[in-house]
Design a protein around this nucleic acid. Structure first.
Length: 674
RNA sequence: GCGCCCGUAGCUCAAUCGGAUAGAGCAUCAGAUUUCUAAUCUGAGGGUUCGGGGUUCGAGUCCCUGCGGGCGCGCCA
């Protein structure tokens, strides 16, 4: 509601200023520091002062006097050196907010442009850790927010099932442990297979370190075999990757994270996506074959400081590589290898093909089948090189915007991918391919010590220690969720011995998920999270459980109210009465709560505009805080004035609706009791 | 060496396109419960927004510079 109203005010001001002064200005609206200064304010007159060569305060006075009625705004006042402060019509705000609060979310129209959010994308060779969870939670939350705003969103999880990381564990299984294929198949069916591979991957890493030459040879052979899809290694890779993906899906399902499509790298290769993209890149001259230097035999993407598409690039088609001058050869230190000298393609190359497909620019599509082991009977689609199932959705429809949730360390590689698109002439796609970057989750030294990790002297000095899948060092997602559930369980058992065991479990789970997701969402994306069990297991203050608790309190009031009050005592109040309560001298805190509850759309808008899910987390916390404050000041059910009691009850219901909606955007469920 | 990011209260973090008196949580201290659940609330202390210049009516935010830290620059991803 807040956003709707301020948009209206913004448009009215812009139109009025254009008409009155003949200038086009962007109207900046901010929230005044104090409620006595109104609900929205604009410093636009300072900007106008420059253009009109008049005192800002004078302009503000002129505008305040001449701007006609704006629906929902009671009055406009001039403040400070020339601020325009808008005061809302509280009764009207209450009315419209109620309507909006009871409405369901916008449903996407079928002709709406498609948005793809790619997230999670964990290498399928080991268990998921806390850093992967940050990725998934960020992506999943952004999806929820976009969908809430009526966008058509498709969720993809990229499965790098033919990469080096999978190859390493394949070598671990076949060479180090001398397992047979049937043995690996059995092993993959056992519980916690992802944990097993977690350890094996770490062992493989040290095995490679012992003899780097042998390692390089083994890796290259295995990787090539996997890419070609032939032989024992390829079969083991498939069994391994499929089993681990299933583990990841289960882990993420615990956090209520699901996917529409698992896009597998093996299909990018087998369905010749890469070959097609390779041809395009060669034809356009975007990449060339290095004939000398240390990259001899590789296909490389030239990379300069201000790499842009130019006429030279389009001229340099076939044969250019043979004409390269020695000077140019010297430049290629910075060039990015797309195809290795042994003919295998790098991740960047495959990603260019994948991005082209996302935007419908490849002229090809995958085939689709249901993933056989989706958690709790849900449907997840996966790419396949065989025939599509007849009812498969059209995943190949081109997207207008793509969010790629990938950690900040890969910024350079993402730039290379975008540059690849640009060099193919797809400037728009490059622009709409968003690297939704986030910083890593590291561990505090204390947390590292708890995990029996031996810190080097340099590491001990730092405020955090980076996790490493290769070293097998990190907090595994399932372990963390288990730990959280254990902590919330004991708390719930203590507080609610009357609950059935099943109900206790469900409640504890909801709180554990609330704690974890909120913890990962309260920081901005750019902030490194120094993980510590103490902070993550905290349920007080700025946390998910705090928000959930506010909802639980409201539900308690509603339950008790339904028991003790008659129907007439809970009837709706009219807007005049509401306006009276909200405008009364002692109604300031009530108005603050109404305003906060009516500002969800504002938080959602800001969140989308800045691509920052933390906005919604902050909003949910602030609303919960405003409610808890209100809760202590007003005893609702014992309010003597029946009309006021009805109003307070209706207010709590409104807060409940908005708060439940806000936390659901964060993927957090509010339990009935806790 | 080159490129990107960051430096805000004791700690962890906010602060919309450059807007009014820089805000939260944690921690510390002092209080609140015969009450709709204390996983809560009230209050207190705590700041040269890393230093120095500049632009501007206005700078935590933009520019320059110095200092300190992180990350990236693999025929890994």
């Amino acid at each position: 509601m807040y956003q709707t109203l301020t948009n209206r005010l913004r448009e009215a001001l812009a139109a009025h200023i254009r008409e009155k002064y003949g200038v086009n200005v962007e109207i900046v609206l901010e929230r005044p520091p104090k409620l006595e200064m109104g609900e929205a304010a604009s410093p636009v007159c300072f900007e106008l002062a420059k253009r009109l060569k008049k005192a800002p305060r004078q302009i503000a006075q002129e505008i305040a006097a001449s701007l006609g009625k704006v629906e929902g705004v009671a009055r406009l006042e001039v403040a400070g050196g020339g601020y325009l402060n808008a005061y809302f019509d509280r009764g009207a705000f209450w009315d419209s907010a109620q309507k909006e609060g009871s409405g369901e979310r916008q449903s996407p129209s079928s002709n709406q442009q498609k948005i793809i959010v790619e997230h999670t994308s964990i290498n399928p060779n080991k268990a998921a850790h806390i850093g992967h969870v940050r990725n998934a939670v960020l992506g999943d939350t952004m999806v929820r927010i976009l969908r809430h705003a009526g966008k058509r969103v498709q969720i993809q999880n990229y499965i790098d099932n033919t990469g080096v990381q999978v190859a390493d564990v394949v070598i671990g299984l076949l060479r180090m442990e001398q397992r047979t294929i049937s043995n690996v198949k059995m092993l993959a069916k056992e519980p916690k297979f992802d944990y097993y591979c977690w350890d094996l991957y770490a062992k493989a890493t040290s095995f490679f370190a012992e003899n780097p030459e042998r390692a390089a040879k083994l890796r290259a052979e295995t990787l090539k075999a996997i890419e070609d899809g032939r032989g024992e290694a390829a079969e083991v890779a498939q069994v391994l990757a499929d089993a681990i993906v299933t583990c990841h899906l289960q882990t993420m399902a615990r956090l209520d994270i699901h996917y529409d499509l698992l896009a597998r790298e093996s299909e990018i290769l087998h369905l010749k996506f890469w070959d097609t993209a390779f041809e395009m890149l060669k034809q356009s001259g975007a990449i060339h074959l290095a004939t000398s230097g240390k990259m001899k035999g590789c296909w490389v993407l030239p990379w300069e400081e201000k790499a842009t598409i130019n006429t030279e690039a389009s001229e340099s088609t076939k044969g250019t590589e043979k004409k390269k001058t020695p000077a140019e050869e010297d430049e290629n230190e910075q060039d990015k290898i797309i195809v290795r000298s042994n003919g295998t393609v790098t991740y960047v190359g495959k990603d260019i093909a994948y991005q082209l497909w996302k935007f419908g620019l490849l002229g090809k599509d995958f085939c689709y089948r249901r993933w056989p082991n989706a958690p709790n009977g849900q449907t997840v689609w996966a790419t396949t090189s065989r025939r599509s199932e007849p009812d498969a959705p059209h995943f190949g429809d081109p997207a207008a915007t793509v969010y790629n949730v990938i950690d900040a360390r890969q910024a350079y590689l993402q730039d290379v991918v975008a540059e690849g698109l640009r060099r193919l002439g797809h400037e728009e796609a490059a622009k709409n391919s968003i690297h939704f970057a986030y910083e890593i989750v590291a561990l505090t030294p204390r947390c590292a010590a708890e995990l029996n990790y031996e810190l080097s002297p340099e590491e001990a000095k730092k405020p955090y220690v980076e996790v490493s899948g290769r070293k097998g060092f990190g907090v595994k997602a399932d372990d963390l969720i288990d730990k959280l559930e254990a902590a919330t369980s004991s708390e719930v058992q203590q507080r609610h011995p009357e609950m059935s065991e099943k109900e206790q479990k469900r409640t504890a789970h909801a709180i554990a998920v609330g704690a974890l997701r909120f913890f990962l969402l309260k920081f901005t994306r750019n902030s490194i999270i120094a993980f510590d069990f103490k902070d993550a297991l905290s349920f007080e203050g700025e946390t998910g459980p705090y928000c959930q608790y506010a909802v639980v309190r409201i539900r308690g009031i509603r339950r008790r109210g339904a028991e003790t009050l008659t129907q007439t005592a809970t009837s709706k109040v009219n807007s005049d009465a509401a306006g009276r309560f909200l405008s009364a001298a002692e109604g300031a805190d009530l108005w603050e709560l109404v305003l906060s509850a009516g500002s969800l759309d504002y938080a959602v808008d800001a969140s989308i505009a800045t691509q920052e899910p933390s906005f919604v987390a902050k909003y949910a916390f602030q609303l919960a805080q405003a409610f808890n404050n209100f809760y202590h000041r007003h005893h609702i059910l014992s309010e003597a004035d029946a009309e006021k009691r009805a109003f307070l009850l209706q207010l709590t219901e409104f807060v409940e609706a908005q708060l439940v909606r806000a936390v659901s955007l964060l993927g957090i469920e509010a339990p009935e009791k806790m």
